[in-house]
């Protein structure tokens, strides 16, 4: 599938900010399931922002503003050709032993409820790890309804499960936490989810989980949608949790109230690019 992505994030400040530093983890790289045809990250009009690679292999661009500013705009424009690999990630230069992804983090600390969610699947893990992972994905989705506005980017896996509601970020966190309890190294993945038909637009900055399964390697599980990533998914970056893979993380000085608009359009391309939809969303990854 050929996917076009247009993602704009616009911060407006009531009074000017004096200094801003943002890390942008918004750059997709090639893997066996996706070929990047075109990709630009534009921060306040610049597409040559300084770049480094972080510990998880994510490409990070740094946007700094040292003069007073009322507005900040981050834009991503990309075209990607994807293939369905049944969620199995190949062609990525892994920088860390999978075992490192068994660490817990503040956002992915287990509590009794997450243990209760994971425990019944334990016997299945040794029999058929892939089947166990699918069972876990469905249990997570059964336990956490898709509801926007109930959680935010600081919500822990335990809190989301207790609320029984959340968005894709929360499904990914609960999945990761439970998977680690079952012995799977697991990580958080950020990316985009395109619509199903040509021209069909999803306003979807998305997130899912990857579990390390012996013999297969890293395999994606999108608990929010109960599927393994297919040709509709564009993978951007990964981390131990949301914080490690956050598409935009920053700090600013000065500035009063902030208002934020995010427009995301990820859609399959036909012969011609289609025009874009505009919607106001929260800055959080969202899912269908």
């Amino acid at each position: 599938m050929d996917i076009s992505i247009h993602h704009t994030t616009r911060y407006s400040y009531a009074t000017p900010a004096t200094h801003t530093v943002q890390h942008l983890r918004l750059t997709a790289r090639d893997n066996a399931g996706q070929r990047i045809a075109r990709w630009r990250v534009i921060g306040n009009g610049r597409d040559d922002l300084p770049v480094h690679t972080d510990a998880f292999g994510n490409i990070v661009r740094t946007l700094t503003m040292s003069d007073p500013h009322h507005e900040l705009v981050v834009e991503v424009v990309g075209e990607v050709r994807t293939e369905d690999h049944a969620g199995i990630l190949k062609g990525v230069d892994e920088t860390m032993p999978a075992a490192m992804f068994s660490r817990t983090t503040a956002l992915t600390a287990a509590d009794n409820a997450i243990r209760d969610l994971a425990t019944p699947i334990a016997p299945a893990v040794t029999k058929d790890a892939v089947d166990a992972a699918h069972q876990l994905m469905n249990r997570v989705r059964d336990a956490v309804a898709y509801v926007t506005g109930e959680t935010d980017s600081d919500t822990t896996a335990a809190a989301a499960l207790a609320a029984g509601a959340g968005v894709c970020q929360d499904h990914a966190h609960v999945m990761i936490t439970a998977a680690r309890l079952l012995g799977f190294p697991a990580r958080y993945v950020s990316g985009y989810l395109a619509g199903e038909e040509v021209g069909e637009i999803y306003e979807a900055s998305h997130a899912w989980a990857e579990l390390f399964i012996d013999g297969l390697g890293w395999v994606g599980f999108d608990a929010a949608n109960r599927v393994c990533p297919n040709e509709r998914y564009v993978r951007i970056g990964c981390g131990l949790d949301y914080r490690g893979a956050a598409p935009i993380i920053g700090i600013r000085r000065g500035a009063g109230a902030e208002s934020l608009t995010v427009e995301v359009a990820a859609m399959p391309m036909g012969e011609q690019n289609q025009s874009q939809d505009r919607r106001d969303l929260s800055e959080r990854p969202n899912s269908s």
């Binding site: 690679t53 510990a55 920088t95 860390m96 032993p97 075992a99 490192m100 068994s102 660490r103």
Partner: peptide
Amino acid sequence: ILHAGVIDTDLVLRNPAFLPEMNGF
């Protein structure tokens, strides 16, 4: 040293003092 089995992998990689953020550096 972990691949060679000289030191237990989890002791290092899951150690709170190990900073995953510095991997590859």
